[in-house]
Simulated assay, not measured.
Amino acid sequence: MMLIPGLAMLIIFSYIPMAGIMMAFQKYIPNRGLFGSPFIGWSNFKLLLEYPDIGRIFFNTIFIAFMKIVAGLVVPITMAILLNEIAREWVKRTFQTLVYLPHFLSWVLLSGILIDVLSPSSGIVNQVLGLFGAKPIFFLGDNAWFPYVMVISDVWKEFGFGTIVYLAALTGINPSLYEAAEIDGAGRFKQTLFVTLPGMMPIIVLMMTLNIGNVLNAGFDQIFNLYSPQVYESADIIDTFVYRMGIQQAQFGFATAVGLLKSVVSFIFMSMSYILAYRVANYRIF
């Protein structure tokens, strides 16, 4: 009985909309509906492969997503190790709470903050750079800077949440290993290198393999709220491209074909990640 509401929402919002996949093989006409629009086979997919910017869009997606995955592993692990070295519990919990708070803020709110902070005319970042004689940088309007701003801001927002996972992994390390290392003359750095990191390795490998499934998810909410036409060259990803084609230009069939292709590739990567997680980290979903 308790599962019925959740199952109902899953069926209504996840399974029933799958009928819309038919649009990928149609020249969808809204007034004719899903079952009245003409069937055109693989034409939308052929158009997709011939689209001049599709290679760049896939590259942007994979490039930004890959950098987020790498940074999203390195930064939380480092932060968890540093927090674990703090002796006073109240200080540790205070820092943990502060870095965890941005996770609860939406990208709509954070995008407004970032636009103000990174403004080339009045942003605090450019004002600080100006003190050192640097010229103003249009971080959100320069193709060379935009992808890295996306990665840094995403890591800042989410690394506190990831830190909790690795702090939990640290609690599972046997304290006697640190005592034995200290007796052998190992300082804090060598204890971290030879006790802490090996003890965290199973969860690190698990998180790394599971993140393979997100290699085509570069963050629609973040990029949509921060990008502009002048940075399409480096900022346009699959999800924003689907939004523009489907919602703004009303090419519903073509947009559905792009989204379906992304879903199929993501499914393959996700299946691979779970297989690797089982074989490498002995992690099983079912």
Rank of each mutant, 00 (worst) to 15 (best):
N217D: 13
T196H: 07
V70C: 05
G130A: 06
Q26P: 09
G162W: 08
S121M: 11
M22R: 13
A71E: 09
L73N: 05
A169H: 05
P202A: 15
V108K: 06
F35S: 05
I124W: 10
G130M: 07
L10G: 11
I16Y: 15
L3P: 03
L140C: 14
S119W: 05
Y278R: 11
S234I: 12
Q127P: 02
V117H: 08
L110R: 07
L131I: 06
V195Q: 05
G199L: 11
A169G: 14
I152N: 00
F286V: 08
I173G: 09
V231N: 03
G130D: 00
V231P: 03
F35A: 07
K92D: 04
S121F: 10
A257G: 08
G259W: 03
G162Y: 09
F63E: 04
Y100T: 02
I237Q: 01
N174I: 07
Q127W: 09
V265H: 02
F35D: 00
L49T: 14
L49I: 15
G133I: 07
M245A: 15
L10F: 15
S153R: 04
T171S: 09
P202W: 15
R93V: 04
I57E: 01
V99A: 03
T61R: 01
L129F: 14
A87Y: 06
G213C: 12
L216P: 06
F224G: 07
N84Y: 11
K68M: 15
Q26M: 07
L131C: 00
E233A: 08
F146I: 02
N84I: 12
D154M: 02
G187P: 01
N60W: 04
T97C: 02
V70H: 03
L193I: 14
F139R: 05
S122F: 15
I237G: 01
E50D: 14
T192I: 08
P229H: 13
W42R: 01
F95T: 06
M270W: 02
V151S: 00
F104Y: 02
L105K: 02
F35P: 00
Y243F: 14
G6T: 10
K190C: 09
G199Q: 14
A8V: 15
V265Y: 03
A180E: 11
G160L: 02
F35Q: 00
E158M: 04
K27T: 14
G20M: 12
F104R: 03
G185Y: 10
P102M: 10
D154P: 01
Q251C: 05
K157I: 09
M67G: 04
S14W: 07
D142P: 01
E158F: 11
L210W: 07
Y232M: 10
